[in-house]
Computed example of a mutant assay.
Amino acid sequence: MTGPTIGNLRVNGAILRYEVRGHGPLLLLIPGGSGGAASFDGIADDLAAEYTVATYDPRGLSRSPLDDPAAEQTVAEHADDALRIVDLLSPGEPARVFGTSSGAIAALHLLTVRPERLERVVAHEPPVVEVLPDVLEHRALLARVGETLRTQGLMPAMAVFAAGLRKGGDTPGPPAQVALPPQAAARAERTMADLPYFVGRIVPAFMSYVPDVDRLEALSERLVLACGQDSRGELPYRPAAFLAERLGAELRHFPGGHTGLTTHPAEFGELLRKAFRA
């Protein structure tokens, strides 16, 4: 199979690098905050047999530079970036959109503000912690992460953040030995380079976002909420489960945990295909 077509799109305050594969209705894949278009390498080609698959590096990440590297980030602006790609690649027809983690938050916001441009949205573990009844604990976590980043640096802040995402803030045991596909292992260096921006800009902006739950309820027939089957009890799982119950919707379970897209790409891609057909 030939490689993707690569383009650059000028948006407000940034240039987005995007990739396009395949033919058919547009399927836009929005990555999480510490990943870029490459995080979809394991599923994009297979999905391109059925869709025009567009992936991109969100503003400030990887190969999508900001005009002002110090610019504050907002969910609304990231969602507008996704809309610009939809308008570019599918001007006459609504698109299907998949987002994971912070990308799922951008997808939720886009659904609430421009539903006519979206056929269906699959949101995988959007960490919209503001909907949770124990939100004060999660606000305190974000404050600790920010303070640790300022006073101790990146890796201590990441440790605080990671501990807060575990089941009940569990003390971590030995790291799980997961054999990543070669492409995923090769992305590690770029992911590490993006971590300061992710922890310092994306995490505080996105995890303080308050979704319009009433609007999502009105649009629930276009929304699929999904979680990792191994994520139960962890913080990224809980908002999607809460929203599914509030909206009276089925909560779909995908293989793996929060990064199941990377650890189980074949099974993940097949379930994603089914979610858009249903």
Rank of each mutant, 00 (worst) to 15 (best):
residue 158 M to L: 14
residue 116 E to G: 14
residue 243 L to F: 08
residue 128 V to R: 00
residue 121 V to W: 01
residue 126 P to F: 02
residue 82 A to T: 06
residue 202 I to H: 04
residue 220 S to E: 07
residue 8 N to F: 10
residue 99 G to T: 10
residue 82 A to S: 09
residue 115 P to M: 06
residue 231 S to N: 08
residue 77 E to N: 04
residue 88 L to M: 12
residue 116 E to S: 12
residue 143 A to I: 06
residue 256 G to T: 08
residue 20 V to H: 07
residue 150 R to E: 15
residue 220 S to M: 00
residue 135 V to R: 15
residue 264 H to Y: 07
residue 152 Q to C: 11
residue 157 A to Q: 06
residue 33 G to K: 03
residue 91 P to M: 03
residue 251 L to N: 09
residue 186 A to K: 07
residue 138 H to Y: 12
residue 38 A to T: 11
residue 138 H to K: 12
residue 139 R to F: 04
residue 161 F to I: 07
residue 30 I to P: 00
residue 86 V to K: 03
residue 150 R to A: 13
residue 104 A to P: 13
residue 221 E to C: 03
residue 2 T to C: 08
residue 154 L to I: 11
residue 121 V to A: 02
residue 31 P to H: 00
residue 260 G to Y: 01
residue 136 L to D: 15
residue 223 L to M: 04
residue 88 L to S: 10
residue 149 L to T: 06
residue 15 I to Y: 03
residue 155 M to D: 13
residue 204 P to G: 01
residue 153 G to D: 13
residue 213 V to E: 14
residue 237 Y to C: 00
residue 26 L to V: 11
residue 22 G to I: 07
residue 185 A to Y: 10
residue 85 I to G: 00
residue 228 G to R: 05
residue 58 P to T: 06
residue 225 L to D: 02
residue 162 A to M: 14
residue 73 Q to N: 04
residue 246 R to I: 10
residue 149 L to R: 07
residue 248 G to N: 01
residue 222 R to N: 12
residue 180 L to G: 07
residue 200 G to F: 01
residue 170 D to A: 15
residue 189 E to K: 13
residue 266 A to T: 15
residue 7 G to R: 03
residue 255 P to W: 04
residue 121 V to F: 06
residue 39 S to K: 00
residue 191 T to L: 10
residue 184 A to Q: 03
residue 134 D to I: 06
residue 237 Y to N: 09
residue 10 R to Y: 04
residue 26 L to Y: 01
residue 246 R to N: 10
residue 215 R to P: 06
residue 256 G to R: 03
residue 25 P to Q: 05
residue 177 Q to A: 09
residue 209 Y to N: 05
residue 151 T to K: 13
residue 138 H to W: 12
residue 123 A to P: 13
residue 12 N to T: 15
residue 17 R to A: 07
residue 224 V to K: 05
residue 203 V to H: 01
residue 262 T to F: 08
residue 72 E to C: 00
residue 83 L to W: 01
residue 214 D to R: 12
residue 219 L to R: 09
residue 195 L to D: 11
residue 140 A to C: 06
residue 78 H to R: 08
residue 28 L to I: 11
residue 128 V to D: 00
residue 4 P to A: 13
residue 42 G to E: 03
residue 194 D to L: 06
residue 154 L to N: 11
residue 2 T to I: 12
residue 206 F to A: 08
residue 33 G to E: 02
residue 204 P to Q: 00
residue 167 K to T: 14
residue 233 G to T: 05
residue 252 R to I: 14
residue 168 G to A: 06
residue 43 I to G: 09
residue 245 E to S: 13
residue 125 E to P: 08
residue 18 Y to Q: 01
residue 138 H to P: 05
residue 224 V to I: 09
residue 192 M to R: 14
residue 32 G to Y: 02
residue 56 Y to I: 04
